[in-house]
Design a binder for these strands. Structure first.
Length: 519
RNA sequence: GGCGCUUUCGUCUAGCGGCUAGGACACAUGCCUCUCACGCAUGGAACACGGGUUCGAUUCCCGUAGGCGCUACCA
């Protein structure tokens, strides 16, 4: 048995932004290709001219670039199996359709879409197949002269695959095992459309995979029902011996309720379903993207990889290289996975924490500028260091107040405002304020401020060396009230660290303001 | 309706005939503590149902029910 070099493909159709489920399919193809030292092909399946969306192809390429999923050949990547855009392969498909026609494995049909619609209306279960094709207008029922005449008159026609009924067709799926469907339930699929003179997915897909020497077809489960048709097509062409192996991936489901994940769910629950922000050229509608939301590409890949696959142990955090090493189609689950956007945020939290504090600052700086605040990268990194392990309150999709770890750089702003803006007012009704600002507190703070004013070295260590003995000696525990002065609430980092960050002057200024206001 | 796939904690899942059914997210509690946290510890939480096969089924087989997909001159 000779081992063929592994060649897989990801073949989206450019009808809009890339869905996150598509990203996962591409990722699995990528992991599989890399693990086997094979190649990943990027093919554009633009055989539906009516649904073509300008910019979609560029968007998809940019999305993979961002995600770190690299292709070896295909549209924009080169290679010697091109062209890789199906709309540029018309002549190739024509030749193969003719081959099927000549062999009597396909036939020409003149029935118009309107006629077929009417037929379906009067006969609910109508299917164009062995049981009905002899009642239709096609090259099986018309004389060859008649067919010639209709074609020369410019009559529109399609080419249909002639499926022989009554055969159990087996698909050997790498994930699901032996799947059997009887050919009688398959219809005589259109292989070549009259409308745009292009093949349908089924034909183009088989011809391209064959010509591009694809060894494994890893795609979504929605293709499983038509897989037997594809097997039959390989056979009709005489390519059964080089037919690729199939692996049908489970679908990504919506987080709540039933059905597959859609853009709607993202909008409703407040998480992106596209890798990059997308501006619809027709409607002008903007859909949020993982990149713009503040996700790290590694986090997205890691999270997505685990939705439907796992390495068989408890490891969840994995680099791309580890995933390449561990990936295994036979360890893919068979059932659909609900999309858990809370866990997605947790993954990002993990990856964000792996980054050095300096890596946060460009994004953090943008946030600050948006608030009209200028700072230095050094000071911003300081704030990141102090605040990255905090928790932020947020509102989930159902409108409930929840808390979560800092998972995005943008989570920082609501936690960090007081580093840059002094509290102007104090809420006496606040639980923390009521508990920690009582009779006599103002006087204690006055004494404490005096002590602080005497400190030369205002670093954390410098403060401690003076304040620690002072608290011993006076019995005053100043920290919570001090926090009210500098922060305005029961939040924030270690007080010495905060004071050191603000500097002596600003620290004292805030304290005096608070003492006056709260006195 | 027909055909196919599928079914372990709320969610993602481990398990490949014998386990106190394991982990992660989320949730709750405790410890730590100058706040909120982080961290650490602890806890609640699952084999859809009914038949078989077997000495023994979460695991194998068959039904039923639920979920998902497909059923276009869309992919």
């Amino acid at each position: 048995m000779t081992e063929k070099k592994v060649r897989v493909r990801f073949a989206p159709s450019p009808t809009g932004p890339l869905h996150i489920g598509g990203v996962r399919t591409a990722l699995y193809n990528y992991l599989f290709a890399r693990q086997h030292g094979g190649e990943l092909i990027f093919r554009i399946e633009d055989t539906d001219s009516t649904r073509f969306v300008p910019g979609a192809e560029e968007y998809i390429i940019e999305a993979f670039r961002w995600l770190g999923i690299k292709f070896d050949e295909g549209v924009s990547f080169g290679g010697n199996h091109g062209p890789y855009r199906q709309s540029e392969r018309r002549d190739i498909y024509k030749k193969y359709v003719q081959q099927l026609l000549d062999a009597g494995k396909a036939y020409i049909a003149f029935d118009t879409p309107e006629e077929l619609d009417a037929k379906r209306k009067e006969q609910a279960n109508f299917q164009y197949d062995a049981s009905t094709r002899l009642q239709m207008r096609n090259s099986l029922t018309l004389s060859s002269e008649e067919v010639e005449r209709l074609i020369s008159e410019g009559c529109q026609y399609v080419v249909r695959f002639k499926i022989e009924p009554g055969e159990d067709v087996h698909v050997d799926d790498l994930i699901r095992g032996d799947v059997v469907i009887n050919s009688s339930i398959l219809d005589d699929k259109v292989l070549f459309k009259s409308a745009d003179q292009l093949p349908t997915y089924h034909l183009a897909n088989i011809v391209d995979d064959h010509l591009m020497e694809v060894t494994h077809v890893i795609r979504g489960e929605e293709w499983l029902p038509s897989a037997p048709l594809h097997v039959l097509l390989y056979r009709a062409f005489g390519w059964q011996d080089s037919m690729p192996r199939f692996a049908h991936l489970p679908l990504l489901l919506k987080p709540v309720g039933n059905g597959k994940l859609s853009k709607r769910d993202g909008d409703k629950l407040g998480f992106p379903v596209f890798p990059l922000e997308w501006h619809d050229p027709k409607t002008g509608e903007v859909s949020s993207g993982y990149r713009e939301r503040g996700y790290l590409p590694q986090a997205v890949c890691n999270f997505l990889a685990l939705l439907g696959w796992n390495p068989g142990n408890d490891q969840e955090l994995m680099t791309m290289d580890e995933m390449i090493r561990l990936f295994d189609l036979s360890k893919c689950s068979k059932n659909g996975a609900k999309f858990d956007y809370v866990k997605a945020a947790w993954f990002n939290h993990q990856y964000l924490l792996q980054q050095p504090d300096e890596a946060w600052t460009p994004e953090f700086d943008k946030l600050l500028r948006a608030q009209g605040i200028e700072s230095t990268a050094e000071r911003e990194a300081e704030v990141v260091r102090m605040m990255k392990l905090k928790v932020i309150e947020y509102t989930d999709g159902e409108g409930n107040k929840k808390k979560r770890n800092v998972s995005f750089v943008s989570d920082l702003w609501p936690l960090c405002k007081f580093f840059f803006v002094a509290p102007a007012e104090f809420d006496r009704e606040d639980k923390f304020v009521r508990k920690n600002w009582k009779e006599g507190t103002a006087e204690e703070m006055r004494q404490f401020a005096e002590k602080l004013a005497s400190i030369e070295d205002f670093s954390v260590e410098g403060q401690k060396s003076v304040i620690d003995p002072w608290t011993e000696q006076t019995g005053i525990r100043p920290w919570n009230a001090w926090r009210i002065c500098l922060v305005g609430a029961g939040q924030g980092p270690d007080m010495y660290e905060l004071a050191a960050f603000l500097g002596k002057e600003e620290t004292l200024r805030r304290m005096h303001h608070a003492i006056e206001t709260l006195a």
